[in-house]
Structure formats: C-alpha cells, structure tokens
C-alpha cells in the first residue's frame, strides 16, 4: 500500500547553514511515527516543509501521493496540523475559529464541526472567546481544527508543550483512538518518554541529520542490553580473565575493584566460574539497566561527545 507520507532527500539550507540535511522516511497508513531529537535538531524546520510553510532547498515530499510543491492544494487537503502552539484567533470564539477553517477547507458541515468539538471535549466552552481559554483548551481546539477535514495525516509539532500530566494522558488516548481509525500521525518531540508511549516507529534526528529509524520495540530491546557491575578484589585481573574467556561481554574496569560487563543472556555460571577459577574474590554483583532515555542520549548527545 502506498505510504501516506513519503519524504525523499529533504534538505533545507539557509545561506551556508544546513538546517535539515538529506533526510528520507515514510509513514504508513494508521501508523504513529515519532520524530525525535533534541531542541534545534531540525524537527520544526522539517515539519514546516512538510506542511508547505517553508520551501525545501531540495528533496521531495508527497502526502497521499501528492507532491507538496507541485500539487499543493491536493496534498494540503489530506493534512491536519498543529505547528507548535496552536495559535488561534483570540478575538473569535472557539466555534468561530473552527468555522473560519471549515470555510477554507470547504464541504464541512455544521454537524461535522459539532462532532469534532465533542471529540475533543469542548462542547461547553465552544462559544467562549479563545482569549479566555486555558492552554489545555487551546491545545484541544488546535486538535479540533486539525481534524475538521478528516485528514489522512495528522502532523503535530511538540503537541504536549505546556500540557499538564492529565492533559497529556487524555491527548495520548485521543491520538491512539485516531490511529486505530486509520489516521496516520507524525508527532515530533524532544522527549522520548512522550513518544515511546504512543508511537509505533521513531526517527531520530540530530543536527539536521537522520540518525536512525527504529521501531519502539527495537529501542526497548536495545535498552535491555543491561550491564553487570562486579565488585571484586582485583579488577585488573578480573578484566583480563573475562577478556580471555568471553571478550564479547566487553569488560571495562570502572574503578578500583569495579568491573562492568554486559549481562550474558541466561546463566551467569560460565562468567562467574571463570573468575572463581582465577581465585578472584567476588564481593557483590549489581545489575544496571539502561533506560530508553540512555539509548536516546547515546544516539544523539552522547554520540556527539564520544
């Protein structure tokens, strides 16, 4: 089946600075894709090119098969967006804001507007001026405007900025139910925790470059690569011993009497047996589990420092 979003070799350079450097990815139907990267990595620039707010220096973007540059109108009909904070007209009511966008999209009935308002739970305050809305309500109205024309692809840039924890949970549930109905979602964030709970796949971007594409399952697997910290009497000797019998465990001397090794899958007997045979006193064994966060840091900031 044709992907809902296809990005090929997308690049944005302003003068000598390359903000986004030759990135490519695809999003399938009903898939929730996370665009992950630290602040300033190029996420917002990428998203603005996707929705036609900025012109790519090179590369191609197709939404539902329609090129964003050449067939803009058709492409935009299939996208709903919130670019950063949903900035709506504060002097209009929530309903009037939605009517503005409905007129631009065409063929949107009052009944559809009512349905969307109900979906985001704004029925009671929809007649109030947006000026009087809380940030959470604005965010929900932002989602409503993005959903009005029933888009195939929903693009959300840092959507939970400024939401409280319960708001974030509600928002996550809303996204999950939309995805279940077949809407594809691209969601950008600098917070891994936010993405791992809703996304199927994640693309990691760092300094404008694509680092990796992985399923959340992959990432979780990687994070389960736990290490063992062994407290021993002679760390150097223990290191050499492990190295000679199982170099794939990557032993590292962490300090006086401290040795770290990858946790072997299954039994520890082989590892511990070799140490005992070498007359090394094993004082304590700790298991250290790395989080998804560590994996992310390693891929982005961590990699840079290394």
């Amino acid at each position: 089946m044709q992907p809902v979003l296809q990005v090929e070799g997308l690049t944005k350079a302003i003068k000598s600075r390359t903000l986004v450097d030759n990135i490519s990815f695809e999003i399938g139907r009903g898939e929730v894709f996370g665009l992950l990267g630290p602040n300033g990595a190029g996420k917002t620039t990428t998203i603005r090119m996707l929705v036609g707010l900025a012109r790519p220096s090179s590369g191609r973007i197709a939404i539902d098969g329609h090129d964003v540059q050449k067939d803009r109108s058709a492409a935009m009909k299939r996208v709903g967006t919130i670019v950063e904070n949903p900035e709506l007209y504060p002097y209009l009511s929530g309903l009037e804001n939605l009517q503005q966008f409905a007129r631009l999209s065409g063929n949107i009935t009052e009944a559809r507007i009512r349905d969307v308002v109900r979906l985001v739970g704004l029925e009671e305050r929809i007649g109030d001026k947006v000026r009087r809305y809380s940030l959470g309500m604005r965010q929900r109205l932002g989602v409503a405007q993005a959903l009005l024309h029933d888009p195939a692809l929903l693009i959300l840039d840092e959507p939970t900025n400024g939401l409280d924890p319960s708001g974030i949970r509600e928002f996550r549930e809303l996204l999950r139910s939309l995805a279940a109905q077949g809407t594809s979602i691209l969601i950008s964030s600098h917070l891994l925790a936010e993405i791992e709970l809703v996304c199927d796949r994640v693309g990691v971007i760092q300094q404008g470059k694509w680092v990796t594409t992985a399923t959340v399952h992959d990432l979780q697997q990687r994070s389960q690569q736990n290490r063992l910290i062994l407290h021993v009497d002679r760390a150097e000797l223990a290191h050499d011993t492990v190295w000679s019998v199982a170099s794939d465990l990557q032993p590292v001397v962490e300090g006086p009497g401290l040795l770290s090794v990858d946790r072997p899958s299954g039994s520890l007997n082989a590892l511990l047996g070799s140490l005992i045979k070498a007359n090394i006193e094993i004082l304590r064994i700790e298991e250290q589990s790395s989080t998804l966060e560590d994996v992310f840091l390693e891929m982005t900031g961590g990699n840079q420092r290394a």
Partner: peptide, 14 residues
C-alpha cells in the same frame, strides 16, 4: 505576530 498565519497557510488555498 499572532502566529495564526501558520494555520492559514498550511491549508489547500495557495
């Protein structure tokens, strides 16, 4: 200034 231009331009109308 209000930022509403983003929602206005990310729509079908040129």
């Amino acid at each position: 200034t209000g930022g509403t231009i983003k929602l206005l331009l990310a729509r079908p109308a040129s």
